[in-house]
């Protein structure tokens, strides 16, 4: 005996596999900032209190777990799709968020590359609407697909009348 349940389907496209490297780098940088001061204290201060060693070990274990698990988990979750009607994304890992923005309400389409992203040949496409609550972002596309997507979206928004509020 089964019943039917309605749910959101996954968006069609995965992001570039290189995103795993990008997220790993982000995690490594973040945790280094937290770990290095602790290690400095441990190594250069005479007889540090015992809880400091515990804190450093806990931070280290968390850092390794997060750096290994988060990028892969994210890669399995992150997906996007652009239809003539709407832009549809799924992001996150522990917390996940689906965002849908109708093409008729799009105000701007931007592509952006941070320094790490440039190194890996990745781009972020940002789609803003008139809402003050923030844009729809597609992270981790390779350069060509990002440019192609931005062009497509711009062409479709051109074809839709209205002032998008």
């Amino acid at each position: 005996m089964t019943t039917e349940q309605v749910r959101l389907r996954a968006p069609r496209h995965q992001v570039s596999r290189k995103s795993i490297t990008l997220w790993t780098l982000h995690a490594v940088i973040g945790w280094t900032v937290v770990l290095v001061p602790q290690l400095v204290v441990l190594l250069f201060v005479d007889s540090p209190p015992p809880w400091q060693l515990t804190a450093a070990v806990v931070t280290g274990v968390l850092a390794v777990a997060h750096t290994v698990v988060m990028p892969r988990w994210r890669f399995r979750v992150h997906r996007w799709e652009a239809t003539p009607v709407a832009v549809y994304t799924l992001t996150g890992w522990l917390s996940q968020e689906w965002r849908i923005a109708p093409v008729s309400r799009i105000q701007t389409v931007d592509t952006k590359r941070g320094p790490l992203q440039q190194l890996l040949g990745l781009s972020t496409v940002t789609v803003t609407t008139a809402s003050a609550a923030g844009p729809v972002q597609i992270e981790g596309l390779d350069h060509e697909s990002a440019v192609r997507l931005a062009d497509e979206l711009t062409t479709t928004t051109d074809a839709t009348p209205g002032d998008a509020t």
Partner: peptide, 8 residues
Amino acid sequence: IGWRVSRS
């Protein structure tokens, strides 16, 4: 002008 569905 759009939807967000978030699930922690």
